[in-house]
């Protein structure tokens, strides 16, 4: 058997997509856990302490670049794969197919794009401000002085339009995760007569928990604070 030169590797791209996707999912868990702290007190003490830890811990600060790279790779590969997929069928069908078994897989590029736009706005609102010292400091009664990121969140979530945009974006992120989570396992070759069913269930549960978790925060702040 002669060895062809490996110019293309669709499976390699999909494997990288899956690994990056799962890594980004783990980041969501951390992000959500910290965000939820904002609901537990009225002066954002807990949240600001956690944010301060994240911003100063050297391990987290190093990993932040890994995370950034994962985002870039996931987004670029996603776009490349999608363009190749569009090119693979230059003339479409008159009657659209409907035999798919994972509904949200059809809209990964669309949900992904919205999440990407959300990410840019999110970056401008929080990350950039925090990095360049545009956040006011607060000194708590116990003497700790930290950046008051918590008040940024509370103020933003008082804006109804922003809350609506946030909720819709997170909802679409949930759809993205619902397919992405189980799909990553398949791309990595992890298919099992018994466990695959559980992976799919876990993926659905994960997407619901993440979505509800993130959505709860603006809803509570907008309506009850």
């Amino acid at each position: 058997m002669s060895n062809l030169r490996l110019k293309y590797a669709s499976i390699t791209k999909k494997i990288i997509m899956g690994v990056m996707g799962l890594f980004l999912s783990s980041f969501l868990v951390v992000h959500l856990s910290i965000n939820l702290l904002v609901l537990f007190d009225n002066d954002q003490y807990l949240f600001n302490q956690a944010a301060h830890f994240m911003a100063t811990n050297p391990l987290i600060q190093t990993f932040q670049w890994v995370l950034f790279l994962a985002f870039v790779v996931h987004i670029i590969l996603g776009i490349v794969l999608q363009i190749q997929n569009w090119l693979a069928r230059p003339i479409g069908y008159k009657v659209k197919g409907y035999s798919e078994q994972s509904f949200f897989s059809k809209y990964m590029i669309h949900t992904g794009m919205v999440v990407f736009i959300f990410l840019i706005i999110h970056f401008a609102n929080f990350f950039v401000k925090a990095k360049f010292g545009m956040v006011d400091e607060i000194t708590y009664p116990d003497g700790k002085t930290v950046d008051n990121l918590g008040i940024l969140i509370v103020n933003l979530f008082k804006d109804g339009y922003y809350v609506a945009f946030y909720v819709v974006s997170i909802l679409l992120l949930g759809f993205h995760l619902e397919h992405g989570f189980q799909s990553a396992f398949q791309s990595l070759g992890l298919h099992h007569p018994v466990y695959t069913r559980w992976i799919k269930a876990l993926g659905t549960l994960f997407s619901v928990v993440i979505t509800l978790g993130f959505i709860t925060i603006p809803i509570v702040i907008y309506f009850f604070r």
Partner: peptide, 24 residues
């Protein structure tokens, strides 16, 4: 490796794990 390389070279799309193939 050879079969996947040929498949890609011919211009077939990538798998999105939609599983429409299995259904059809």
């Amino acid at each position: 490796q050879n079969m996947v390389a040929k498949m890609d070279e011919l211009g077939f799309g990538n798998c999105t794990n939609t599983y429409a193939c299995e259904a059809a």
